[in-house]
């Protein structure tokens, strides 16, 4: 591997880590602050017939997790192409 290839790989890795930290921050906020720590106060707000904190804990968090994985996969595929490390 050339030095040039090396630094390019390092840059690709850095971009990947930045992206996944962003995704994990969202993962964390939904699962912990919204669904657990603030569930009490959020329950006084309703979403349809759902108390909001309860909805995050039993519905919203799961939808968010699904969305996050697809978002990550989509952005990584773009990143793979940009750095020319994509598989055929």
């Amino acid at each position: 591997m050339s030095t040039n290839g090396n630094s390019k790989a390092a840059e690709y890795w850095k971009a990947n880590v930045r992206l996944l930290i962003g995704c994990l921050v969202v993962w964390f906020i939904v699962a912990y602050p919204l669904a657990i720590w603030l569930a009490g106060p959020l329950n006084s707000i309703s979403l349809g017939g759902y108390p909001l904190g309860f909805w995050f804990a039993q519905q919203g968090s799961i939808y968010t997790f699904v969305g996050l994985i697809f978002f990550y996969a989509w952005r990584m595929n773009k990143l793979d192409r940009k750095f020319d490390v994509h598989e055929n």
């Binding site: 996944l20 039993q58 799961i62 996050l68 990550y72």
Partner: peptide
Amino acid sequence: IAFNGYDASAYLMGWTGGYVLLAMLLAP
């Protein structure tokens, strides 16, 4: 869930949220 209501959410989130870690930190 029927008998613990909200408190059982730990299982719902725990057994699904792990896939986010799997997809970003291990699987690829």
